[in-house]
């Protein structure tokens, strides 16, 4: 059981790490999408079927498209997707900060006596989730809907060009 988890985790972490160190931003984005897919496999492994498919639908289907469109809309020519390397001090300091945070978190996790729950996967059907979302959590659902609508409108307003102005420039 743990072997599958290590496999999923290893692939996910490798994809994310390689993505963050690549120069070509399109390759970075595609590898990160692979890493998000790995997260959804983790959800599937943990038995949260609905969250796993929602993750694929939202991240691999929607966020990835927004990211790729944004990359293509913010470049002057084809070579523009190759990002210039960062300064050495910046990379080293970022690695130092990240490494120390990682050390802190991992030692905290390993040092805490965590209660181990049931061995078998808890069953949570989509119907249970639906009743929860439409009943006790209805307010949260409504707020999430409002946030999404506002974000959609905001994104359109921000990204839309004033066509007249665009012609003049």
């Amino acid at each position: 059981m743990n072997l599958i988890l290590v496999l999923i985790g290893g692939l996910m972490l490798t994809a994310a790490a390689v993505a963050m160190s690549l120069r070509n931003i399109i390759h970075s984005a595609l590898l990160l999408i692979g890493s998000w897919l790995g997260v959804s496999f983790f959800y599937l492994w943990a038995g949260a079927e609905f969250v796993a498919f929602a993750q694929v639908l939202v991240y691999v289907g929607a966020v990835s498209m927004v990211v790729l469109f944004a990359v293509l809309l913010t470049r002057r020519d084809r070579q523009d997707v190759v990002v210039a390397p960062e300064t050495r001090t910046r990379a080293i300091s970022a690695l130092l900060v990240g490494g120390s945070v990682a050390g802190l978190l991992v030692s905290a996790v390993l040092g805490t006596p965590l209660a181990t729950g049931p061995a078998e996967t808890p069953t949570l059907t989509v119907k249970d989730l639906g009743t929860l979302l439409a009943g006790p959590q209805a307010a949260g659902l409504l707020i999430a809907g409002v946030i999404l609508t506002v974000a959609l409108l905001g994104a359109v307003v921000l990204a839309a060009t004033d066509s007249g102005k665009e012609d003049a420039s």
Binding site: F50, A54, L57
Partner: peptide, 20 residues
């Protein structure tokens, strides 16, 4: 699957990536 319809659409949107 319990969430089969969701799975179907998740698989469907992934092919957009291949198109890109």
């Amino acid at each position: 699957l319990d969430a089969a319809v969701l799975y179907f659409f998740a698989a469907g949107v992934s092919s957009e990536l291949a198109l890109f």
